[in-house]
Amino acid sequence: MKIRVLVSLKPGVLDPQGRAVHHALEGLGFKGVDDVRIGRTVELDVADDTSDEALNEMCEKLLANTVIENYKIEKLG
């Protein structure tokens, strides 16, 4: 089973990388970009019987730092 985990910074947490990329986009002349936030995608290939509980635990224990990040688990089948 293919799993995609999207890890993103929580709202309100400053994202210096996103801010720098935002400036760079403006420097390239792109107009109307209000905000840029950068996250991470983790793609996993797991056994088909892997439980949702186990997937959540992987995120909570390692893939995301829930002090600063949210995560979303997508099952790609």
């Binding site: 947490v13 400053l14 210096p16 990388q17 720098a20 730092n65 002090v67 600063i68």
Partner: peptide
């Protein structure tokens, strides 16, 4: 220590990059 949750908070990229 923060990642091990022995201490609160997290250390992020410096604001200046």
């Amino acid at each position: 220590l923060t990642e091990a949750r022995l201490l609160p908070g997290a250390l992020m990229r410096n604001a200046s990059q």
